[in-house]
């Protein structure tokens, strides 16, 4: 198992992606120390300034320093991404394992609910929840988490059904090992490699969803420096201040790309096992 993961880091692409992700995590952790300005401080006399030595990425429509907003925004983006994915995956694993392991009526109920949530495409599901619950950091996190839960349930259930029939699991059951122990000791470790690859891909998707909501004006509300929200307000100035939309979009792209490349590579390694 460990060998599989060391194989991951042999790829040059993966190393670069890891470096990008770690840089953003570093920015998020030390935002207060490294950002040159206060991300919320407005100065209308300096609005929409192009990049200069004073403001490396320029200023926005309210004269706020874009670089500082990107740095602080990484905090929001990564928080949403990690928390939403963790919640979505945890719920997905919980219901997926239970559904696959016990079968019967429990399985039927969980599957019907999953189908209902899958009746809307993921992004529209997130939009629906935000539309009903209102927009703030937590509703965005919860909406994004819910939007990824059903596909996790499906995947984990499928994997559990396979593992459940493996001989040593059947043997453990025969010996009277209790179900919770079997799930933790046998089922979850067995399905975890595939889940890890999926979680990595979902870290990227959750960023796309969350900043997509922000872009539509129904995500984390302004003045918070959320990248999608920045793009959404910046697009009004596209004709004379295009720098407003370059850096937030590029940040989203780089981060999502990095998660996707690592996720793909993980998937390949698991498949080749």
């Amino acid at each position: 198992m460990m060998q599989q993961y060391t194989r991951l880091f042999k790829s040059k692409r993966v190393k670069i992606c890891l470096f990008i992700i770690l840089s953003f995590i570093f920015m998020a952790l030390f935002a207060d120390f490294i950002s040159p300005y206060n991300p919320l401080e407005t100065d209308l006399s300096k609005s929409c300034r192009p990049p200069s030595f004073e403001h490396l990425l320029g200023t926005d429509e309210l004269g706020r320093d874009i670089l500082s907003r990107i740095i602080h925004g990484s905090r929001l983006t990564l928080t949403i991404s990690f928390v939403a994915t963790a919640l979505g995956a945890a719920a997905g694993i919980f219901f997926g394992v239970i559904s696959g392991y016990f079968g019967g009526i429990v399985d039927t109920i969980i599957q019907r609910i999953t189908e209902i949530l899958l009746a809307l495409p993921g992004f529209l599901l997130a939009i629906m929840f935000v539309a009903i619950m209102g927009s703030n950091l937590w509703t965005v996190i919860i909406s994004v988490a819910i939007s990824m839960t059903p596909s996790f349930v499906r995947m984990v259930r499928g994997l559990t059904l396979q593992v459940r029939e493996l001989e040593y699991v059947l043997a453990a059951k025969q010996l009277g090992v209790n179900d919770i122990k079997i799930m933790f000791n046998h089922i979850i470790p067995n399905v975890s490699p595939t889940i890890i690859a999926q979680v990595t891909l979902n870290l990227g998707t959750s960023i796309l969803f969350a900043s997509g909501l922000g872009f539509l004006g129904i995500g984390v509300p302004p003045p918070a420096p959320e990248w999608g929200t920045m793009l959404g307000t910046g697009r009004a100035y596209i004709f004379y201040a295009p720098h407003l939309i370059i850096s937030p979009g590029l940040s989203v792209f780089l981060l999502v790309l990095s998660f996707n490349i690592i996720g793909d590579r993980l998937g390949e390694i698991i498949a080749s096992k």
Binding site: G204, F215, G228, L231, G232, G249, F253, L257, N260
Partner: peptide, 13 residues
């Protein structure tokens, strides 16, 4: 992979 990772709202802009 770049196309899949590209935020669609940014691409549009």
């Amino acid at each position: 992979i770049a196309g899949i990772s590209l935020p669609i709202y940014w691409l549009g802009l």
